[in-house]
Amino acid sequence: MRHHAVEPLVTKRCIHRSSRLGQATTEQGNSEGVPLLYRPTFWRSAAALVLMTGTPLPLWAELNTPIAARVLTFLLPAPKGPMQAAIIFNPDNAASIADALAIEHAIGSGMPVGNTVIRTRRIATTTLDGLRGYRAAFVTAGLRKEQEAIAAAAIRNSVVTITSDLACVQAGRCVVGIGSGPHTQITVSRAASRAVGARFGSAFLMLVKEI
């Protein structure tokens, strides 16, 4: 299995976050000498932090990671042991970065669900070939423009994509959509499932909205 680690890429873009939410540090690297306020990464980070912590009505729907992770346990054959899931994000998109951070925060060092333990690694939208070897990927918010490319990469690599953006599912580009709100609404695209070769247990499919 080949994984394309993304952290170095992000680090080059001058932002590094620990898995703890809100802990961001700028690094000198190739941005050395540029005033902080003029660095684009500063504004992306600041926007992400504000959006994640201070705004009562978020501008995007954050992925409900615990539910997204549990959806994976209904794949057939059921995953057993450690399972690597990709987080597809755009390093130039604040919403995407914030969603990626939130997913990482929720997963932590590994989220045990069913008979598996899910761990995540980031895959940038610019390096989607890195999806090879993954069985599932969380598609972060704010990637409307990249969804077509993500879908193509997911089909090539047989990756189940899960997102909070229901439009992606309705367009048949993402496999699973998880709606926000008190009544958990899960939508599964039959076309996208078939395209990536994913099978879910029938009990699960009877409880979700299949389109």
Binding site: I67, H183, S202, M206
Partner: peptide, 16 residues
């Protein structure tokens, strides 16, 4: 071929 029912897992995923 009937569904395999894991009530605990299904409850966790649909929230009820």
């Amino acid at each position: 071929g009937a569904q395999t029912i894991d009530y605990q897992a299904l409850q966790a995923v649909v929230g009820e």
